[in-house]
Design a protein around this nucleic acid. Structure first.
Lengths: 128, 128
DNA sequence: ATCCTGCTTGACGTTGACGCCAAGGTCAAG
DNA sequence: CTTGACCTTGGCGTCAACGTCAAGCAGGAT
């Protein structure tokens, strides 16, 4: 039941994902999105929506749009050739290492935040 | 035994943390670092090193230098006043929410990566 | 017919985070 | 006393990721 017929206009996309019209055009310019045209108008399908979601998650994680492009490419077309597949597997390894490093950074940050919060809470208790 | 006497030059800092001289000056310009002077020369103490480590971790996580500044401020000086403490606690909450969102994003990404890897591995097995 | 709304394509402007000189001070070594 | 290594302060350049006009098409409502 993954809907394949519904389409969206640029305004609906911008609205649904809380990005500007301009940003959508920018992503398209960089090849991250490739909406159809109906006459002049851009017309977005399901595929563009999942791609946009990936783009935005990438941005939240601090990836550059260029990095995001290569990530999208990874998911794009399963290559039929073994060499390509091996290459893709190595890329997956790289990405995973990157993400795991970020996760460690985040967990360290959260731990330090906890400490700080505890000290604060104690101070508040003492002072009131 | 946290050493409080050793100091470092800009070149040592740049070397130890693998950043450029220019970046260090930039961080100083924005108030993220505030090394002493010995005559003209910048002279970095332990404090600047821990700050720089926080800055770089922040950058890896995709925070802007401005956001990093507020984070550093949080850790800077424990305020003695209750109002300030409450404010700090609220900020800590904000940061934690942000970090936890990122962690979710990362874990989602890792899961999808796992799926993709599995599909790839299967394809390789089939083709060879 | 004209007006409004929503869209289009340029194209220049802006902000953040530095890179990259230029021009010169300082100090130990030769 | 000059050289070289290392440092200093400007200040212009650059790249990414859009923001912000400007000018214009297309189609339905008045």
């Amino acid at each position: 039941m993954t809907d394949t017929t519904t389409t969206w206009t640029i305004a609906q996309m911008a609205d649904d994902y809380d990005v500007t019209h301009r940003a959508l055009r920018h992503y398209e310019h960089l090849g991250l999105l490739a909406p159809d045209r109906e006459g002049q108008r851009r017309i977005y399908h399901r595929r563009e929506r999942t791609r946009l979601a990936l783009i935005l998650r990438g941005r939240r994680l601090g990836f550059s749009l260029e990095e995001i492009a290569t990530i999208l490419d990874m998911y794009d077309d399963q290559p039929g050739e073994v060499g390509q597949l091996r290459y893709l597997l190595s890329q997956i390894g790289d990405r995973r290492a990157d993400l795991e490093r970020r996760r460690r950074d985040i967990e360290d940050s959260l731990r330090e935040l906890d400490e700080l919060e505890q000290r604060c809470a104690e101070d508040v208790a003492r002072l009131s």
